[in-house]
Design a protein around this nucleic acid. Structure first.
Length: 480
RNA sequence: CGAGGUGUAGCGCAGCUUGGUAGCGCGUUUGGUUCGGGACCAAAAGGCCCAGGGUUCAAAUCCCUGCACCUCGACCA
């Protein structure tokens, strides 16, 4: 049978360039990251996807601890009366809250919200736990799932239930709260870039786009390979917006009773979606080594031949001993060619092939998933060479993504330029700051304001969108 | 949420117009030969045709409702 004919029987991924959405769905479903469940918008994370989430979690949790945060666990149900306490917050979340109305067969006197986020329950508890300036700051985080009754859902990007972390902190002063807000934004930037190899723009959201109930919202925005923006994480400064209605007060050193200043910040399993859409290619996933469930896969070639498995097992033991996440794929019912494709689809950063020819030369043949380059590594220095390669793959993925993001980000000076630029990229523009103008850009181009970078050096006098006096440097893009 | 499309074995599909109780390829299982980019031979197993209603002597096929996925748009921290 001709090779071309055979290929037709094999599962394939829709080419990324042909249909990005279809490509995304194909990759997600064919790599065993997740599966759909009987409940609309609720996905099951399968071991491969769940492991990625665990690795992301470990990286983030370490950083949260290093910056002085402690983990807690809060209830999943929130009484309606609590949710109603902060006006903007209710308005923002009410349309997508799922409600528990019955306990067994009895109707509840007050219905309970399945948490869409936990500000209100945290605030209620903070009011009990905070008395004195000596109790502050109180810096908590929890890992949990939340539920938002979304109308349209997509795996990882927007699901009804999703897993995340939400940090909630209480501070004595506005300055401290602002410092915390920015510090956690920086943690997110670092996780995105150094762990996930996803370059981001960090900055402040417009009033329109900020979190319901926040004084200021900051975000890190990534760019997917179709040029659309994805908000990777957010960090909010609430000021006293929540502490006032929830009466979170403390007795300060000067003897005065004061309202606390609060922050919250979150990142979710959406980061896995970002990983897929930032790095994936025609062959499937490309995972950065730091969050790859398997960093190296060893494929024996002609495993039945004398000595091959011994060498493979030895290489496996060495790498495993060095703390590298490695698998020896010793299945004998699929050919090497099959395994190549399968592990490429699943995004394993580095493949080692060891066959009779390699053994004769004292080497392993490798292929790196980021560049698809092949080469050989001496078997007697394998651990170090593999570790070096993994580090280089981690860096190269970031460099590739950054080059793409830079190329697809341009300064614009007119509405026409802005409209053209957001068709597959970010537009950096001087902006007037007015809501009406922002709505108009959305209407005309489909793009929203993403965020205002910290470097606010002006590069034009007038708003690119409306021509009024410019106030801010702003990134515009169409977003997920 | 609006317009359009799709849903049949684990996966990819045919069958549906013109109703008569389901087929192909891959995969799976077993045995053997293979092994450096999706191997080969032989035998076997595998389906409440997305779900729920309806029409009919009879429904994968026709009608209604729901669910899921895709495309475009609307909405969204």
């Amino acid at each position: 049978m001709a090779k071309q004919e055979k290929r037709d029987f094999v599962q394939h991924i829709t080419p990324r360039s042909e249909n990005f959405s279809q490509w995304y769905t194909d990759v997600v479903t064919q790599t065993d990251l997740m599966d759909y469940t009987p409940v609309r918008g609720c996905m099951a994370l399968r071991p491969y996807g769940n492991r990625i989430w665990e690795l992301i979690r470990e990286e983030m949790d370490t950083r949260f601890r290093e910056t002085g945060h402690e983990n807690v666990s809060m209830p999943m149900l929130i009484p309606e009366s609590l949710l109603l306490k902060e006006a903007e917050h209710v308005e923002g979340f009410a349309p997508e809250v799922a409600w528990v109305t019955h306990g067994g067969n009895e109707k509840l006197q007050e219905r309970l919200a399945v948490r869409p986020t936990s500000e209100t329950i945290f605030c209620t508890m903070f009011a009990k736990w905070v008395q004195s300036w000596r109790d502050l700051p109180m810096k908590y985080n929890q890992w949990c799932s939340v539920m938002r009754w979304e109308k349209t859902t997509r795996p990882f990007l927007r699901t009804a239930e999703f897993w995340w972390q939400e940090g909630h902190t209480v501070h004595a002063t506005a300055e401290e709260a602002q410092e915390e807000t920015l510090q956690m934004l920086e943690v997110y930037r670092e996780v995105c870039e150094d762990v996930l190899s996803i370059p981001v723009f960090a900055g402040r959201k417009s009033d329109k786009e900020k979190f319901a109930g926040a004084r200021a919202t900051y975000s890190v925005e990534a760019m997917m390979q179709d040029g659309k923006a994805l908000q990777a994480a957010t960090s909010h400064n609430f000021g006293t917006n929540f502490s006032e209605p929830f009466e979170i007060q403390f007795l300060d050193k000067d003897g005065a009773l004061k309202y606390c200043h609060e922050t919250s910040w979150g990142a979710s399993t959406r980061l896995i979606g970002a990983l897929i859409m930032t790095h994936g290619d025609e062959r499937g996933l490309r995972l950065p080594p730091k969050v790859a469930p398997l960093q190296v896969v060893i494929l024996p070639i002609a495993a039945h031949k004398g000595g091959v498995m011994d060498v493979c097992e030895d290489a496996f033991a060495q790498l495993k001993g060095a703390g590298i996440r490695v698998k020896l794929d010793d299945r004998d019912h699929v050919t090497p060619g099959w395994k190549f494709n399968e592990w490429e689809l699943k995004g394993v950063p580095l493949r080692l092939e060891i066959g009779p020819r390699d053994i004769a030369n004292g080497v392993a043949t490798y292929m790196r998933r980021d560049t698809l380059e092949k080469g050989t590594l001496a078997l007697d220095n394998l651990t170090q060479d593999v570790a070096d390669l993994l580090k280089d793959i981690q860096d190269t993925l970031l460099a590739q993504a950054r080059a793409f993001m830079d190329e697809k980000t341009r300064d614009v000076f007119t509405m026409e330029e802005l409209a053209a630029q957001v068709d597959g990229g970010y537009a950096r523009a001087m902006w007037c700051g007015e809501r009406e103008c922002e709505d108009n850009v959305k209407e005309e181009t489909g793009a929203t304001t993403r965020n205002m970078p910290f470097d606010q050096t002006p590069f034009a006098d007038t708003c690119a969108a409306c021509g009024k006096k410019a106030q801010h440097v702003m990134y515009f893009a169409r977003s997920y």
